[in-house]
Deep mutational scan, measured.
Amino acid sequence: MIINNLKLIREKKKISQSELAALLEVSRQTINGIEKNKYNPSLQLALKIAYYLNTPLEDIFQWQ
């Protein structure tokens, strides 16, 4: 199972779901689904999230 800290990191950086979704060219619902662990992002999307949040990938997504 993958645990993610996306919501915590996104809120710490004061970025809304809508703003992050626009940067990543995905829907706000996609961001919401990832934050709620409804599904895991593709590797490409995970890397883009880490890039736009300027945060190491392993700080956002962790195996458990």
Rank of each mutant, 00 (worst) to 15 (best):
residue 58 E to I: 06
residue 50 A to M: 04
residue 39 Y to K: 11
residue 54 N to L: 06
residue 11 E to W: 07
residue 56 P to H: 07
residue 18 S to N: 14
residue 10 R to L: 05
residue 40 N to V: 15
residue 9 I to E: 05
residue 1 M to K: 06
residue 45 L to Q: 06
residue 63 W to N: 04
residue 56 P to D: 08
residue 37 N to I: 03
residue 57 L to T: 04
residue 23 L to T: 07
residue 17 Q to I: 13
residue 26 V to D: 02
residue 9 I to N: 04
residue 47 L to A: 12
residue 45 L to C: 05
residue 50 A to V: 05
residue 10 R to F: 03
residue 58 E to A: 10
residue 45 L to P: 00
residue 8 L to K: 14
residue 37 N to R: 08
residue 36 K to A: 15
residue 38 K to M: 14
residue 9 I to K: 04
residue 37 N to F: 07
residue 19 E to Y: 11
residue 42 S to E: 06
residue 49 I to K: 00
residue 56 P to E: 08
residue 29 Q to R: 13
residue 39 Y to T: 12
residue 47 L to M: 14
residue 64 Q to V: 12
residue 11 E to L: 12
residue 11 E to T: 12
residue 9 I to R: 03
residue 8 L to R: 14
residue 15 I to D: 00
residue 50 A to R: 03
residue 50 A to Y: 02
residue 14 K to V: 06
residue 14 K to M: 13
residue 18 S to F: 12
residue 51 Y to A: 10
residue 27 S to P: 15
residue 52 Y to E: 10
residue 20 L to A: 02
residue 16 S to K: 10
residue 45 L to K: 02
residue 21 A to R: 03
residue 42 S to R: 06
residue 26 V to A: 04
residue 15 I to Q: 04
residue 7 K to L: 08
residue 9 I to F: 09
residue 9 I to S: 04
residue 54 N to A: 14
residue 10 R to N: 01
residue 13 K to G: 05
residue 40 N to M: 15
residue 31 I to N: 00
residue 53 L to N: 00
residue 56 P to I: 06
residue 58 E to V: 09
residue 24 L to H: 01
residue 6 L to M: 11
residue 9 I to L: 10
residue 39 Y to C: 09
residue 54 N to C: 08
residue 6 L to W: 00
residue 15 I to L: 11
residue 46 A to V: 05
residue 1 M to T: 08
residue 49 I to C: 05
residue 3 I to R: 11
residue 5 N to P: 02
residue 18 S to D: 14
residue 5 N to E: 04
residue 62 Q to N: 06
residue 38 K to V: 14
residue 29 Q to E: 15
residue 27 S to K: 07
residue 21 A to N: 02
residue 25 E to T: 08
residue 19 E to R: 13
residue 6 L to T: 03
residue 7 K to H: 08
residue 27 S to F: 03
residue 18 S to M: 13
residue 13 K to V: 10
residue 33 G to S: 15
residue 56 P to Q: 06
residue 59 D to W: 10
residue 26 V to Y: 03
residue 55 T to H: 08
residue 63 W to A: 04
residue 52 Y to V: 15
residue 1 M to R: 05
residue 37 N to D: 09
residue 1 M to Q: 06
residue 55 T to E: 12
residue 25 E to Q: 14
residue 28 R to C: 09
residue 34 I to D: 00
residue 63 W to Y: 07
residue 21 A to H: 01
residue 29 Q to M: 11
residue 12 K to G: 13
residue 3 I to G: 07
residue 63 W to T: 04
residue 24 L to F: 03
residue 15 I to A: 03
residue 26 V to H: 03
residue 16 S to T: 15
residue 2 I to F: 10
residue 37 N to H: 10
residue 26 V to G: 02
residue 43 L to C: 08
residue 37 N to E: 07
residue 7 K to S: 10
residue 21 A to W: 01
residue 19 E to F: 09
residue 47 L to V: 14
residue 17 Q to M: 08
residue 42 S to G: 09
residue 15 I to S: 03
residue 49 I to G: 00
residue 28 R to D: 12
residue 30 T to A: 08
residue 22 A to R: 13
residue 51 Y to M: 10
residue 59 D to S: 10
residue 33 G to A: 15
residue 38 K to G: 07
residue 16 S to W: 03
residue 64 Q to W: 08
residue 19 E to C: 07
residue 58 E to Q: 13
residue 14 K to D: 12
residue 34 I to Q: 00
residue 49 I to P: 00
residue 60 I to V: 07
residue 35 E to M: 02
residue 33 G to R: 15
residue 63 W to K: 05
residue 26 V to Q: 03
residue 61 F to S: 00
residue 33 G to Q: 14
residue 4 N to K: 02
residue 47 L to N: 11
residue 44 Q to N: 12
residue 2 I to L: 12
residue 38 K to W: 15
residue 35 E to A: 01
residue 50 A to F: 02
residue 36 K to P: 01
residue 50 A to C: 06
residue 42 S to C: 06
residue 20 L to F: 07
residue 39 Y to V: 14
residue 41 P to R: 01
residue 30 T to C: 11
residue 27 S to A: 07
residue 3 I to D: 05
residue 44 Q to L: 12
residue 61 F to W: 05
residue 19 E to W: 08
residue 36 K to H: 15
residue 40 N to A: 15
residue 15 I to F: 10
residue 44 Q to I: 12
residue 54 N to H: 11
residue 31 I to M: 04
residue 33 G to K: 15
residue 53 L to C: 03
residue 27 S to D: 12
residue 34 I to M: 05
residue 57 L to Y: 05
residue 40 N to P: 14
residue 52 Y to D: 02
residue 52 Y to L: 11
residue 22 A to F: 11
residue 56 P to R: 09
residue 41 P to G: 03
residue 43 L to G: 05
residue 34 I to E: 00
residue 47 L to Y: 12
residue 43 L to S: 06
residue 24 L to T: 14
residue 10 R to W: 02
residue 55 T to F: 06
residue 48 K to Q: 11
residue 50 A to E: 04
residue 21 A to I: 03
residue 50 A to L: 02
residue 43 L to W: 13
residue 48 K to M: 09
residue 36 K to C: 08
residue 18 S to C: 08
residue 42 S to F: 04
residue 32 N to M: 15
residue 58 E to Y: 11
residue 62 Q to R: 11
residue 41 P to W: 03
residue 57 L to W: 05
residue 32 N to Q: 11
residue 20 L to V: 03
residue 13 K to P: 00
residue 7 K to A: 11
residue 15 I to R: 04
residue 20 L to S: 00
residue 14 K to E: 11
residue 45 L to G: 02
residue 13 K to Q: 13
residue 63 W to S: 04
residue 45 L to N: 03
residue 53 L to F: 08
residue 59 D to F: 09
residue 60 I to S: 01
residue 63 W to D: 03
residue 22 A to H: 13
residue 59 D to L: 12
residue 37 N to M: 06
residue 23 L to Q: 12
residue 6 L to R: 00
residue 31 I to Q: 01
residue 39 Y to I: 14
residue 24 L to P: 00
residue 1 M to I: 14
residue 19 E to V: 10
residue 13 K to W: 07
residue 21 A to G: 07
residue 42 S to V: 04
residue 10 R to K: 01
residue 36 K to Q: 15
residue 16 S to M: 06
residue 17 Q to C: 05
residue 41 P to A: 04
residue 45 L to W: 03
residue 46 A to W: 05
residue 25 E to P: 06
residue 25 E to L: 10
residue 64 Q to K: 10
residue 51 Y to L: 11
residue 38 K to T: 14
residue 60 I to L: 12
residue 16 S to D: 06
residue 24 L to W: 01
residue 20 L to R: 00
residue 23 L to C: 08
residue 30 T to P: 01
residue 10 R to D: 01
residue 43 L to T: 08
residue 6 L to K: 00
residue 19 E to L: 09
residue 18 S to Y: 12
residue 18 S to R: 12
residue 61 F to V: 02
residue 52 Y to S: 07
residue 36 K to M: 15
residue 1 M to D: 05
residue 9 I to C: 06
residue 5 N to F: 06
residue 55 T to V: 13
residue 62 Q to G: 09
residue 53 L to T: 04
residue 46 A to L: 05
residue 38 K to Y: 13
residue 17 Q to G: 05
residue 17 Q to H: 04
residue 60 I to M: 06
residue 31 I to T: 02
residue 12 K to I: 11
residue 25 E to N: 13
residue 38 K to L: 15
residue 61 F to E: 01
residue 49 I to M: 07
residue 5 N to Y: 06
residue 48 K to R: 14
residue 13 K to F: 09
residue 58 E to K: 12
residue 12 K to E: 13
residue 49 I to D: 00
residue 1 M to S: 07
residue 42 S to W: 04
residue 55 T to G: 02
residue 20 L to G: 00
residue 58 E to T: 10
residue 56 P to K: 09
residue 39 Y to P: 04
residue 21 A to Q: 02
residue 28 R to S: 13
residue 37 N to G: 14
residue 47 L to I: 12
residue 25 E to W: 07
residue 23 L to K: 12
